[in-house]
Design a protein around this nucleic acid. Sequence first.
DNA 1: CCTTGACTTAAAGTTAGCTTTAAGTTTTAT
DNA 2: ATAAAACTTAAAGCTAACTTTAAGTCAAGG
Lengths: 131, 131
Amino acid sequence: MSGLSIGQLAAKAEINASTLRYYESVGLLPPPERKNGQRRYDEGLLDRINFIKVAQQTGFNIQEITILLEGFVPGDSLSDRWEQMARQKRSELEERKKQLNSMIQILDSGLSCKCLTWSECKEKIENEGSC
Amino acid sequence: MSGLSIGQLAAKAEINASTLRYYESVGLLPPPERKNGQRRYDEGLLDRINFIKVAQQTGFNIQEITILLEGFVPGDSLSDRWEQMARQKRSELEERKKQLNSMIQILDSGLSCKCLTWSECKEKIENEGSC
DNA sequence: CCTTGACTTAAAGTTAGCTTTAAGTTTTAT
DNA sequence: ATAAAACTTAAAGCTAACTTTAAGTCAAGG
């Protein structure tokens, strides 16, 4: 047997088979070969699927991920919309990273500082490194 | 006039007035005083609202934010569920931070490396610091 | 041969987190 | 005094990203 069935790929990727069909329908995944009408996948797709997961977790929506993935088409140079999206997204992600750091410190401190407000806590963290 | 109307607070917080009502309905915001049936808010609430925004951006859902906010009730010590949530969330946020860093590097590199897969790119970044 | 389980499509249903609508009351500005 | 703007509630509507359902086809084991 050459290639994985949709169920087998889904199991390996730890997602629902119907999610795979959905991704195909919205263009996130290329239409695979068929054998007797049934989809056959190459195991290499796991990599793409995992990338999709990370992209989602870092704040890309499905439309943005389809653009992002254009960057992995061998031989193609990056499209204008790829570069534009990348520039915009980069600053969003930097902002999110800052927020993440503040939030981690707040969780770490267990609010031992007894600050009454978020801004008080945040400022202390920024000036004194912890709270 | 003492206190802000819902519209005024909404404007300052740059969110929809109906979002404020919604937050109240799900317990994210305390029921404010009323004047002739209309809500009157203290400007200090802005701080809480901004914290809610950051919490959302860093991956807390509304239920989790309500727990998180228990930490800002003056006089109360942290509840068990606060500490449990904090522990669990902390590791989630650390993971997200790593993903964020990889993703930022990928955007930065503009895929100049011409990696064909996400894992190839990620590995290169981890070993060589860039791609 | 027949049953069982995995596959197929198209369409409807689900959840979170709002947002809009409808129908009515209050406040504010002229 | 009155018209427009802002408020009230309850309920319906919206969007993204799936997930489930219905009705049917295909393939492997006993």
